[in-house]
Design a protein around this nucleic acid. Structure first.
Lengths: 199, 199
DNA sequence: GTCGGAGCTATTGTCAACAATTTCGTCGCC
DNA sequence: GGCGACGAAATTGTTGACAATAGCTCCGAC
């Protein structure tokens, strides 16, 4: 689905063999999650998140994931924290072999695991929302050459700090990692002007 | 509206002279904002946020308002930052006179103003959501004796740091303030068991 | 040639009736 | 006396039709 694309209720209901009411409801849900924009009397369109907004989203992620990393390091049982090591070795292997898909999947797993074991369910929910709006950019960033070798040590640092139970270090590592994502986003040209019209 | 209370569509539609469809839609919106709980086939009820959850919400607020305070201190034009001083003097006056209503209103104003001038619209949106779920507790905390004299210096410290343009200090002050709110919440007995049944 | 308005079309918003499901009370049975 | 099945009432979910609105096209006037 292209950002900016119009979403006509009847069209969707035919395509997915659903009633218009269901489609309407689904669109409202998506709007609540910030995935589509819903203008009264003028219908729905896929929301386009600008690079600027992606940066702000990542800044929020830095704050929230910092909190989660700290709490995970401080409060999660050491056995669960140890489990992160496995993700770390998997990441090392994936990067060494140039397997971007696996690395990307492990990336998600790591962030989710830390949020989960932090016990911060509210923060976890907010992060899910925020990440949902970032899909387009996450995809684009991961494919950039040299990016994995840059982010791998950051991920390993987060794992080390959490496993060591060092809350302050874990928070700092998580924030440093996301700050680097922000820097990468800043270097992204806003070349999506075409998409915005709803090609 | 009491937490846990059942919200029957027909009843609401009669009370507010709206159609059931509108009520249904409104309930969905409120559910998206986390204000009501919507169980399929079993209707809606006012969501009850436990003290535990209120603490987690405040932890997220600490992280996000810390970010906003820092950015406000660093990036907002000095003229707008100076405007906070006015809120500060108003707070001092309200506390001195024991005017809890005014102090409470200024409290909201201060937090909103900082979020607004930080330019972090994403964080601002998340904070609005989170605060919406806290209404019950905010109300309760503000009425506690001695609370204003405890929070006033914290508020003034935030204002000082933001006006001075000291990002790190502003973030620290904001977090310290919300940490104190958390401590206060921790001292709140979960005496709402009765409410939970939907009295 | 362009601007403004009328009418048309596509699309969303609203409504009332109907269907399906859950809940609660009642009765019978163990 | 308690447990489970049955049935009625209450409530939510779904459907289709209708109303209202926004955007577009076409026509006419300046």
């Amino acid at each position: 689905m292209v950002p900016g694309q119009r979403l006509v209720e009847q069209e969707l209901s035919e395509r997915y063999h659903a009633t218009r009411s269901s489609v309407r409801e689904a669109l409202q849900d998506l709007a609540a999650e910030g995935l589509v924009e819903l203008v009264p009397r003028r219908g729905a369109r896929v929301r386009v998140v600008s690079v600027e907004e992606a940066i702000q989203i990542t800044e929020c992620r830095a704050a929230l994931e910092g909190l989660c990393a700290r709490r995970a390091a401080e409060h999660a049982p050491s056995q669960r924290r140890e489990g992160l090591r496995e993700i770390g070795t998997g990441m090392r292997k994936a990067v060494a072999e140039g397997d971007l898909n696996t690395y990307s999947a492990l990336n998600r797993q790591l962030h989710d695991a830390i949020a989960r074991m932090s016990g911060q369910t509210v923060a976890e929910g907010l992060l899910d929302r925020l990440k949902g709006q970032m899909v387009r950019y996450q995809f684009r960033l991961a494919l950039r050459p040299g990016r994995p070798s840059q982010s791998l040590p950051q991920h390993l640092a987060i794992i080390d700090a959490v496993v060591a139970g060092d809350g302050a270090a874990a928070e700092a590592a998580a924030r440093a990692h996301l700050d680097s994502v922000i820097a990468e986003l800043r270097a992204t040209p806003e070349r999506d002007a075409a998409e915005r019209l709803g090609a």
